[in-house]
């Protein structure tokens, strides 16, 4: 039973079933549902640059961020169900917001192909095969330079989509498939689903002493 991140998950009022499903899933190697092997390689490399493992804590790979994003592609959000997607589609100044006809899953499909093509054109290899300094250079270009992927997708839109979903994967409850072993929350010092600070409100200064816990009951 693969429920995490599916449409059934988002509409389920009873969470017991998918809690068990996620526990069972977590023990297995994740099989991508949406992304192709080449897309997966790009995402593993790019998300690790956005959120690298270092002395502060785990990186995107250790936290299962790409699996999280893959699951999200299968939700209403991934299909654009949370956005107003009626035409006509017309471009305008950036401060008036997103105006493309693409749902998140399409932004990824077009964006990853465009990013890899950009890297092959400029550096001779797909993104995942570049050395780390070159990967950082490419991501910085996507973030800041007026690069187009295909006809209409600005690299900056793709970059922000990827950055946003990477942070969500690092910091959402592990029930969504990321933040593996609550590594993101432990690093941040967020206690998770404890959600009761009646006795801690007016203890001024010290760090909160109790560790992170997931909605599922998983502890760090």
């Amino acid at each position: 039973m693969a429920l995490a991140g599916t449409a059934a998950f988002w509409t389920a009022d009873e969470f017991a079933d998918w809690r068990q499903a996620i526990a069972a899933e977590a023990a297995q190697t994740y099989t991508p549902r949406y992304f192709t092997p080449d897309e997966w390689r790009f995402l593993e490399a790019a998300t690790e640059q956005l959120f690298p493992e270092d002395e502060t804590g785990p990186g995107a790979k250790a936290l299962g961020v790409v699996g999280f994003i893959d699951r999200q592609m299968d939700t209403s959000y991934g299909h654009g169900g949370l956005w107003f997607m009626s035409g006509p589609f017309q471009s305008g100044p950036a401060n008036l917001g997103y105006q493309l006809p693409y749902a998140p899953r399409e932004i990824y499909r077009i964006g990853i192909a465009g990013a890899d093509q950009y890297c092959r054109d400029h550096y001779g290899h797909a993104f995942a095969d570049l050395d780390h300094p070159t990967q950082i250079e490419a991501l910085t270009a996507f973030e800041k330079l007026p690069i187009q992927f295909g006809e209409t997708l600005a690299a900056g839109i793709f970059f922000e989509q990827l950055r946003t979903n990477t942070m969500e994967g690092a910091f959402s409850d592990p029930i969504h498939g990321g933040n593996r072993h609550l590594g993101g929350w432990v690093m941040l010092g967020f206690p998770g689903a404890r959600a009761d600070f009646m006795d801690w409100v007016d203890q001024y200064g010290p760090a909160y002493p109790l560790g992170s816990v997931s909605i599922s009951g998983e502890t760090a």
Binding site: L50, F51, P52, D54, T56, R163, T166, M187, L188
Partner: peptide, 14 residues
């Protein structure tokens, strides 16, 4: 994002 992002984030959050 990248190097230094997490350190500044954690410091700010705490």
């Amino acid at each position: 994002w990248g190097a230094g992002y997490k350190k500044a984030l954690v410091n700010t959050y705490r």
